[in-house]
Amino acid sequence: MSHQIEFSGVKKVFGTGASAVHAFGPVDLSIAEGEFISLLGPSGCGKSTLMLMTSGLLEATEGSVLIGGTKVKGPQTDVGVMFQDNTLVPWRTVRGNVELQLEMRGMSLSANKDKVDQLLTSVHMEDFADRHPYELSGGMQQRAAFCQAMVHEPKTMLLDEPLGKLDAMTRERIRSDLQNLWMQERPTVIFVTHSIEEAIQLSTKVAVITPRPGTIERIIDIDLPFPRDFEVKNSPEFAAYVRETQEIFRGYGVI
């Protein structure tokens, strides 16, 4: 398997001199194509910083990020980015918001109509395509935002706590939608979260990040079958992964 994304010695320092804040790194990490890797860590450990550096929206202070063998310099367009606060605009409908991604890239709307429909259907949003974001619940908004982030079929998806602001039950449901989308399209996903269960349920690999300055403490391969439904989540193997991860954070005094 080829390495889709490679981090080598990536480090981020904000500011200079005495007021400089060492936010993240140095980190080395290789992510294979089609992998779903979670960056799991406490608040303020620099997970989002790593994501922004991967998408080229933020420059690394040291080291380099390679996507598909090419060094990241400036914003990457073959990625789908999703932020904790979604990027749905209030003046467009759900469909219009998904199409905004295509329009911004100068992609044809008519050629991609089926794609938009199919994405909306796969997250159960087909009946809400003509609604505006303010008419939807937080969970529905995030579903629409998933479609917006992947309608241009990016090879890499960067998801920064996309479920962070949702209630526990809605999160549960959207996780399985997200898993289905990933299994269907198979992009390489970097998923930022601070939920241990969420990371283990969704990921092929979990990178455990230490408190600031964030570095990778351990990478845990999650060897469980997909789709990870209710049965898998209640299996002893799943519980063992949760336990293993919790131990690491307890060592840091985070939990």
Binding site: L52, S55, L57, P75, Q76, T77, V79, V81, F83, D85, N86, T87, V89, Q101, M104, R105, G106
Partner: peptide
């Protein structure tokens, strides 16, 4: 908003 600024940049629009 910061998010929409980043979103716009990420599309290369």
């Amino acid at each position: 908003s910061e998010e929409l600024t980043l979103f716009s940049r990420s599309t290369g629009g």
